[in-house]
Simulated scan of single mutants.
Amino acid sequence: MAAPARSSMREALASLAAALVVAAALAAPAAAETRLCNRTSVVTEAAIGVAVEATAATRGWFRLDPGQCRAILQTAEAPGRLFLHTRPVGEAPGASLGQPNQRQLCIGEGDFLVPAAQSCRQAGHVMAPFAEVRPTVAEGIAILFLSEEADYDLPQARRAGIQRLLTRLGYDSGPIDGLEGPKTDGAMRAFVTDLNLPADAAALPDIFDRLLAALRAGEGPGFAWCNDTAYRIMAALGTEDGGRMVTRGWFRIEAGACLKPPLEGAPPRVFSFAEAVDGDGRPVLRQGRPLTFGGETAGCIRASEFEITGTDCAAHGGLPAQFLAVPFDGRRRASLRFREPR
């Protein structure tokens, strides 16, 4: 009896994997397909999972800009239950779209296919939370929506996504509401001028690529970290709130890259602490001591992701650290470059 069961399992895995391979190869809309549409203001990467009983396969990554739809299956009737895992692009550490964690499945990086995703067997693959999703079917097309509380339609989501990234870059685009307005237009004109882009850049298909590239490069007004070392940098941000220090971390800056952390409002002072880590996340040592970048202002850090108000670090399970006060110029523009000591 065991052999037919194993054969059935192999057939199920082959069927699931084939369905997902076809999905990744789609180049044009089909007569019947399953589409994923992004009605949020966040550039998002998605991984899809298909499960039949205890067997599952996963495929990723599908990038969706705000307001964009993509085909993820070449059928409106999936061969099993559908699951979805998403991660935002260009957002703060720990940001998510708030999906429930209903099943753990295996994912990889880049263009991946995991045919037996109930567990991970390959280096670089990790288990991740997936939420079960049920598409709406109309005229042979099944549609899944990524949504947020604002409940944008697709054109509004595109405008809200542009507003979000302009704000992250330090431009005053007004509220992130998906509506047209003079502040959003003025912020886009300033961005286009600063980067010498075409006047119609906002209408071009690559506008989110340009905005994300500018964010990673530290362009625009505001504060950016830039990593000139050969190591990954883990950075913590400090701001003043009612005279008290509030610290948050960790923000990852890869070697040779820049990162603009989100700054809510216009804090009067900004502070920074950072440390270099190796490929395994261990501190880089120089003369037996961790390679860190800080200053003379007391703040708190913690080994894992954190947000701490005040400087009583022990009360929050944290450790004291010395933060650097970051000076701004008249446009409230500043960049802090991490360099290895000579």
Rank of each mutant, 00 (worst) to 15 (best):
A78L: 08
R59K: 03
A51S: 14
L113M: 02
E91R: 15
G90H: 12
T58R: 04
F112R: 05
A56G: 05
V89W: 04
R59W: 01
A76V: 04
L73M: 06
E77I: 13
R70L: 14
A78P: 09
V52C: 10
R103P: 05
Q99N: 08
L73F: 10
R70H: 11
T75N: 10
G80I: 09
R59H: 01
F62E: 07
G60Q: 00
D65S: 14
G98K: 04
G80P: 13
G67F: 14
P79S: 07
A92H: 15
A71S: 15
E53K: 07
R103Y: 09
G110V: 12
F83R: 02
E109R: 15
P66F: 11
I72S: 07
G60F: 00
T86N: 06
T75I: 12
E109D: 13
A78T: 05
S96T: 15
L82T: 03
R87I: 08
V52L: 14
R70S: 15
V52T: 15
G98Q: 05
T86L: 09
I72W: 04
P100C: 08
G60R: 00
R63H: 02
L73H: 06
T55Q: 15
R70G: 14
W61T: 00
R70Q: 14
L82P: 02
E77Q: 14
R87Y: 02
F112Q: 03
L64Y: 13
D65K: 10
T86C: 11
G98L: 03
L82C: 06
N101H: 13
V89E: 05
A71R: 08
P93C: 08
I72H: 06
A57T: 09
E53L: 06
G98F: 00
G90K: 12
Q99P: 08
G94V: 10
L64K: 11
S96R: 04
G108Y: 00
A56N: 06
S96V: 03
D111H: 04
A92T: 14
P79G: 05
Q104E: 11
P66G: 07
Q99T: 06
V114T: 04
I72N: 06
V114W: 02
R70C: 13
E53Q: 12
L64W: 11
L97I: 12
Q102P: 07
A56D: 03
R59S: 00
R103M: 15
A78S: 12
Q99W: 13
T58W: 00
L105S: 01
C106E: 14
I107N: 06
N101R: 15
G60K: 01
P100D: 11
A76W: 03
E91M: 14
G94C: 10
A78K: 08
T58A: 05
V52I: 13
I107F: 02
F62A: 09
L64D: 10
Q74S: 07
Q104P: 09
A56P: 08
G67E: 11
P66C: 08
G108T: 00
P66K: 05
A54N: 07
P88M: 00
A78N: 07
P66W: 08
D65Y: 10
G98P: 02
L84H: 00
T86G: 12
G94K: 07
T75D: 08
D65P: 05
A76S: 15
A56Q: 03
L82S: 06
V114L: 05
F62V: 13
G110T: 10
C69E: 10
V89M: 04
T58M: 05
I72E: 07
L113Y: 01
C69A: 11
A51K: 03
A54R: 05
H85V: 03
